[in-house]
Design a protein around this nucleic acid. Sequence first.
DNA 1: GGTTTATCTTGACCAAAATCAATAGAATTT
DNA 2: AAATTCTATTGATTTTGGTCAAGATAAACC
Lengths: 193, 193
Amino acid sequence: MYEVFFSKFNEKVQLSESEEYAVKQFLTPKKLRKRQYLLQEGDICKTVAFIEKGAMRSYIVDSNGQEHIFSFALEGWAIGDLSSFLTEQISTQNIDALENCELVLISKYAHDQMLISVPKYATFFRILMTEAYIALQKRTLSIISMSLDDRYKSFIDQYPDIVQRVPQHMIASHMGLSPETLSRIRSRIGKSQ
Amino acid sequence: MYEVFFSKFNEKVQLSESEEYAVKQFLTPKKLRKRQYLLQEGDICKTVAFIEKGAMRSYIVDSNGQEHIFSFALEGWAIGDLSSFLTEQISTQNIDALENCELVLISKYAHDQMLISVPKYATFFRILMTEAYIALQKRTLSIISMSLDDRYKSFIDQYPDIVQRVPQHMIASHMGLSPETLSRIRSRIGKSQ
DNA sequence: GGTTTATCTTGACCAAAATCAATAGAATTT
DNA sequence: AAATTCTATTGATTTTGGTCAAGATAAACC
């Protein structure tokens, strides 16, 4: 149990047996069926979810009722509304399962406790946070500086597994485009993948 | 010296006198004249800069030679190419001063040392990192889901000081727009500010 | 197995932003 | 003080992506 989680953890910060045991006490397993919600807007994000198996997404709904996907997450990734989780304010995001999922949940209480009592958790969290920031920075740079064709090419290059497992119109939504436009981009660049 | 830096630090994590002294040993003051570079693309980002006074920006240049501003930073903010800083790979970003600046520099060596020897620095860095991520997430959400008018309104609302101190065409660049389009947005919404 | 629903593509048309160009006022430089 | 550079606005035109609509295929559901 928790194989993917601890393999990721040990890849970033090496844990001893006893440390691993200590962390384990704070974790909760959870299964989610496809289309089930982990978080709905208006609620407070009470847990961060680490994905052992499956695929999830987070999205917001704008004033016209249109969905906009903020992020995808596959095995080995974490998902949650960090802003709501840390401040305990209500969230504007929705998070649901794109496939049946096996998750490892970390509650706010568990998170706060581990930050205090398991120094390596603080390190692990800092590293994940930094990596997430760098990835988001890269995405922002590509939005403000690249052509749509290049943005899509770089996306399939960086996340081929997402392209394979997620419907195309959701990738369009993630890029801030209409499905029709993404379809035309693909035909322009030769439907690679 | 370092007033703004330590006031920010203590706001996030309270330091004792001796801890403050320990941190001080790792800091380097630096003044930059307007238009001077802190980092040029092709170089490795060797320091993170904390701004005591002045204004800076980071930007990338695309394949057509066009500049795209990634971020602004004023007093109390930090700036640097985190990806290059942490991995010690060459940077694609340029960082320069928009006004004469007084900076506090933290080198990679100082950063690594403090992470090990000053636990509260690790906490401080984790908190800054988390806040930066949340801000960038908010920006990304606004890009994929809001109208340009609303994005600009929310920008002047959130960063009135930047709007006042930075030329309009740079704000257009930061939003990924042409200067003409931003000018037209302003005339549409009534030139607020 | 057959129906319904989801997904993707393509075309026609429309709306929005980019580009090109000209102007004018501010701010810097010399 | 004059000249130069930077900045912002406005108009005309072009380009790009969005919207609407129809059709085709594939997948999920009963």
